[in-house]
Design a protein around this nucleic acid. Structure first.
Lengths: 148, 148
DNA sequence: GGAAGTAGGCACTTTGAGGTGCGTAACCCA
DNA sequence: TGGGTTACGCACCTCAAAGTGCCTACTTCC
């Protein structure tokens, strides 16, 4: 036996690295926004809705929305996931939830400054996607065709 | 029955929206980089390695790396996931894989221009994380404390 | 009087991302 | 002679994220 088995050393490096990852802010942000609906909700509340008029410059005015409004805009989301995602975003201080006790209670959600800043950051991401994603997909098909 | 049941309309809107999502470039990009290891590999090959010397300005020189180098740098990754992730990145034209038939074959990976551009984009993401993630985590704990 | 809306809660189930472990085939070194 | 390295392939397993379906009270509209 040498001083330490090489396999043991690797195992130790592994747990250390994993601990590092768990605390890394970038990693936590990625875990946050990689959620299927988070970015979509951010876009909805931030004003980047799905209207894809090419000529229209995005006014991009953030607005408060009600639960059912978001639900209709993001037609694919289940009620459960919408509630869950909104709660987690509120928990992280990215949006505010205000209940107004009308006859049937209405709840409206609005981005905080923090949420707005995150929304602005995701714009760079969307820009990259719109300008480069087509190339990526083309290369992917090319690759699949070559490897027959 | 009215002309169309409202429930049916909602169901249709749902499948349409889901189809839209499947084709949306931003969504596909997010699916791509939300992979646990993609961004880490990008950082490794892009030169943003884990060395966290605060004073040292990141030289950020992209370099080719061998399979085992990456494996050691990202100590937590399993061999399977590393291979799988590298292959998918090659497939998308984000990096190149070159085999040199030495005695035991050595394989080296290098970012393409496309991959490099994606890596640069992720930098904005990391910047946001480093400047705002602490605030998010603080609000989260605050929220958890309030709801006792 | 039945359908629709409002804002969810609760329980069950499925899916797949990711991990684990084993094997290769050739070489090197103590 | 036995462990280490190189770059994976393959099969199995697990667990949590996400989806589905059903429920609430109360109200308003046609």
């Amino acid at each position: 036996m040498t001083t330490t088995k090489a396999a043991q050393k690797r195992a130790q490096a592994k747990v250390e690295y994993n601990a590092f990852l768990a605390a890394c802010p970038s990693r936590r942000l990625l875990d946050r926004i990689s959620d299927k609906w988070v970015v979509l909700i951010l876009c909805a509340l931030g004003g980047d809705n799905g209207s894809r008029q090419p000529g229209a410059a995005h006014a991009d005015v953030p607005k408060a929305m009600r639960y059912s409004e978001i639900s209709r805009l993001l037609a694919g989301v289940s009620q459960k996931m919408l509630t869950q995602t909104l709660r987690s975003l509120e928990r992280d201080g990215l949006l505010t939830r205000t209940v107004t006790p009308t006859v049937p209670v209405t709840v409206s959600y609005e981005l905080t400054d923090l949420g707005l800043s995150l929304h602005h950051m995701t714009r760079g991401l969307r820009h990259w996607a719109q300008s480069h994603m087509a190339e990526v997909l083309a290369k992917r098909e090319n690759y699949d065709a070559r490897t027959s």
